[in-house]
Amino acid sequence: MIQAIAFYFFATIVVASAVMVVMARNPVHSVLWLIMAFFNAAGLMVLVGAEFIAMLLVIVYVGAVAVLFLFVVMMLDIDFAAMRAGFSRNAPLGLLIAAVLLAELLLAVGAYNAGGLSLGTPDGSAVQAADTSNIEALGALLYGRYIVLFEIAGIILLVAMIGAIVLTFQPPKPGARARQDVGKQIRRRPEDATVMKNPEIGQGVEL
């Protein structure tokens, strides 16, 4: 019974905060509701026995991705009036996208109910045997059966990362100030930078 209570608790919060992401007026509130949804989705993962995925969801999405979202959104200077003025103009496109998403969702659920997908069953029979932990089972699959796909995904991510760095890298302009040399900064002693003066009382110091 506690499992059922926990499931409905997490599920309700996920759906409610997902609705609030769309409904919230303030974009920062939207991001915070999104984080709430991520976090409770992780709770759902724990309930189905996928604790490794749950922890990854929190570490990657809540801990890193959403922080960057929040960071960017906090800096935005959004004109709410102008944003709402564009609503009627963008509404048909939005409705079209919503209709496509709804159709896809119905198709996916239908295919799942018809047995077209072998993802796992809602009754929990897909949970792995009790003697292997989540991490071991995932590791055996990722580094065994799917090693090539895993490596390809890694290479793609590496290329994307290097691409992002190359795109944003700006070579120093000619004539710009020299870069700082940390070793030189550390080697600098007080004697090189300061002089000790011992002036007589009433006398000034000449530098």
Partner: peptide
């Protein structure tokens, strides 16, 4: 739990929200 260390990583990465939210 057998993902104890990951749990600590996950929870401690949440800590930044308190700071960011208070600052904003």
């Amino acid at each position: 739990i057998n993902v104890g260390l990951l749990y600590i990583l996950a929870i401690s990465s949440m800590g930044v929200y308190g700071v960011v939210m208070s600052g904003w």
